[in-house]
């Protein structure tokens, strides 16, 4: 029962948990940056007029989106060392996995964003003598990015939660750190409650911020 709980172990394990949280944040940021860049390229490929390129991008995105993330994590952890011929730690494997996996989700958001830009904008760019890459870079993508910013950030909050699944390959993130701390002090229950609280506070405040941002940056048409 609750009266038997001993929350004093939490203060002792804080430095350890902080190290775990740092990895979780690092993984989220790396996956977000890599995922958005790679995802935008995938979206452009998917909307390209070159049929094989568009089909390859669509196949990649749909495959990633229909496999459970845990399986993707296991696949990468198994395949990366075989393909590179070198052993790879759980941490670097996790980073590659999340970049590749999240790119599929970010690319769907960016595709919707690009499609939300009125066609006249592209024509205007062409009329000004812009090449394809210039009109994408200076006209379409900035608008697509701005329109989709709240959704991209919401996806990043989901990504932040999903990083806990690196548990499957034993990489030391916030959750794994709390589990180890719980075992060391023989207080697993308190640790699980505490770590759930940390995740909740971070995700809830971020999602409130995104809500505010959404109201502020909405383009009034």
């Amino acid at each position: 029962m609750l009266s038997d709980f001993d929350f004093s172990v939490l203060t002792d394990s804080l430095p350890f948990l902080w190290a775990g949280l740092q990895f979780t944040i690092q993984l989220t940021l790396v996956a977000m940056t890599g995922g958005i860049i790679f995802g935008t390229l995938l979206a452009l490929a998917r909307l390209s007029s070159m049929k094989p390129l568009a089909m390859a991008a669509a196949a990649y995105v749909n495959t990633m989106r229909s496999i459970p993330l845990v399986m993707v994590i296991l696949w990468f952890f198994l395949l990366l060392p075989l393909l590179t011929g070198k052993p790879m730690g759980a941490e670097s494997s996790a980073m590659m996995t999340f970049m590749a996996f999240e790119a599929a989700y970010y690319s769907e958001i960016m595709r919707a964003g690009i499609q939300s830009v009125p066609r006249g904008q592209v024509h205007a760019g062409q009329a000004m003598g812009f090449t394809y890459s210039q009109s994408m870079r200076f006209v379409v993508l900035p608008q697509a990015f701005r329109n989709m910013l709240p959704i991209l950030l919401t996806q990043t909050i989901v990504l932040f939660q999903d990083t806990s699944l690196v548990y499957a390959i034993g990489s030391k993130d916030l959750l794994k750190a709390s589990e180890i701390a719980g075992k060391n002090y023989n207080r697993p229950i308190e640790m699980y409650i505490f770590v759930a609280l940390i995740y909740f506070i971070i995700c809830f405040s971020l999602s409130q911020l995104v809500k505010r941002l959404q109201q502020r940056i909405a383009i009034i048409r």
């Binding site: 939660q161 999903d162 548990y167 229950i189 699980y192 409650i193 759930a196 995740y199 909740f200």
Partner: peptide, 20 residues
């Protein structure tokens, strides 16, 4: 339910809830 990772929720139901 939206702001706690599913995996953490699994552990909460499995290890913590029985204690309560």
């Amino acid at each position: 339910f939206r702001n706690i990772p599913l995996l953490v929720q699994m552990f909460l139901w499995f290890f913590v809830v029985p204690e309560l």
